[in-house]
Simulated assay, not measured.
Amino acid sequence: MISTSDFRTGITIEIDGNVWQVVDFQHVKPGKGAAFVRTKMKNVRSGAVVERTFNPGEKLARAHIERREMQFLYESDGEFNFMDNENFEQIAVAADQLGDAPKYLKENMDIGIMFFQGTIIGVDLPFAVELAVVETDPGIRGDTATGGTKPAKMETGCVVRVPLFINVGDVLRIDTRSGDYLERA
């Protein structure tokens, strides 16, 4: 059990059978009335973000999430196969359990997989991945007075807006949190 007075960013708690991660919290002591703890929490399974208030000192069940480093092997029939880096055990994960992660997964890539009570609840991707451009329109000099962008299809199938000077075959760093182009690799 954890008290709401001990909330910190990143702590995971269990409420009504769902696992929530504290994104933001604030201890509020208004001039009139009782103090309270205002939190912003993210559902680890669905990604939904909610705001909720608690009484100070209220006890909640702490959710112990296990993170294991695994290597992505291959995708087959909508299932993504991973191998545990410690015991070499292989598991298959359905695409709907991975959220947006399949857009950035390359073979032999190491990622963190989160488990709660033995079931997979999500993945921890690195903040940026390096992907090669497989399809994009050629940039024409003088196309725009200010910096313009064009769509580029990456080797994993995701489409990213990139500057006009990017060509087919270029390797780019892509932010996995927002899906934005960062830089050439």
Rank of each mutant, 00 (worst) to 15 (best):
Leu164Ala: 04
Met114Asp: 14
Gly99Glu: 09
Asn87Thr: 11
Thr53Asn: 15
Phe7Arg: 08
His27Val: 08
Arg8Gly: 09
Asn43Thr: 06
Val160Gly: 04
Thr53Cys: 11
Ser46Pro: 06
Val134His: 01
Ala63Met: 06
His27Ile: 01
Tyr104Glu: 00
Glu86Ala: 12
Arg141Thr: 13
Gly122His: 12
Glu86Trp: 08
Ile174Trp: 04
Gly78Cys: 04
Lys29Phe: 04
Phe127Ala: 12
Ala92Asn: 10
Pro30Asp: 02
Gly148Asp: 06
Phe165Ala: 10
Phe165Ser: 13
Gly118Lys: 08
Val44Phe: 01
Arg173Lys: 14
Arg184Cys: 07
Ala145Trp: 02
Met70Leu: 03
Thr9Val: 15
Leu105Phe: 07
Asp170Thr: 04
Phe88Gln: 13
Phe82Pro: 03
Arg177Trp: 02
Ala185Cys: 10
Tyr104Asp: 07
Val44Asn: 02
Val168Arg: 12
Asp110Glu: 12
Val171Tyr: 01
Ala185His: 06
Thr146Asn: 13
Arg8Ser: 13
Arg173Thr: 13
Arg62Thr: 15
Tyr104Arg: 09
Tyr74Phe: 14
Asp16Pro: 01
Ile166Met: 04
Ala101Ser: 13
Arg161Cys: 06
Met83Ile: 15
Thr136His: 05
Gly148Lys: 12
Val19Gly: 01
Val28Arg: 08
Pro56His: 03
Glu89Leu: 10
Lys29Asp: 09
Ile11Val: 14
Arg177Val: 03
Ala48Lys: 13
Pro138Met: 11
Val129Gln: 07
Thr149Ser: 14
Gly31Leu: 10
Gly47Glu: 11
Ala35Leu: 00
Glu14Cys: 10
Ile65Trp: 01
Ser178Phe: 04
Asp143Gly: 11
Ser46Lys: 11
Val93His: 03
Glu89Tyr: 11
Met114Phe: 06
Asp124Thr: 04
Gln26Met: 10
Ser5Asn: 15
Gly148Cys: 09
Ser5Trp: 05
Phe7Thr: 12
Phe36Leu: 11
Ile174Lys: 05
Arg45Asp: 04
Gln71Gly: 05
Phe80Asp: 02
Leu73Glu: 12
Met154Asn: 07
Ala48Ile: 13
Ala34Glu: 11
Val168Trp: 01
Gly78Tyr: 08
Lys153Ile: 13
Asn43Cys: 14
Val93Phe: 06
Ala145Tyr: 10
Ser76Val: 09
Val93Lys: 03
Ile121Ser: 05
Lys103Asn: 15
Leu164Asn: 09
Thr4Leu: 02
Pro126Met: 02
Leu172Lys: 07
Ile2Ser: 00
Ser3Asn: 10
Leu125Trp: 03
Gly142Met: 02
Thr53Pro: 01
Glu51Gln: 14
Ile65Met: 03
Val168Cys: 01
Glu69Pro: 05
Gln26Ile: 00
Gly118Cys: 07
Gly148Val: 06
Gly147Ile: 11
His64Leu: 12
Ile166Leu: 02
Tyr181Gly: 06
Ala101Ile: 05
Asp124Ala: 06
Phe88Val: 05
Lys42Gln: 15
Leu164Arg: 14
Val22His: 00
Val160Ser: 09
Ala145Gln: 13
Val133Gln: 05
Ala152Ile: 07
Arg38Lys: 15
Ile120Glu: 07
Asp110Met: 10
Glu135Thr: 06
Val49Glu: 14
Arg45His: 08
Ala92Cys: 02
Gln97Glu: 11
Thr144Asn: 14
Leu164Phe: 12
Ile111Gln: 05
Thr146Leu: 13
Tyr104Gly: 05
Gly118Ile: 01
Asn167His: 12
Asp77Thr: 09
Phe116Tyr: 15
Asp84Arg: 09
Glu75Leu: 03
Ile2Leu: 10
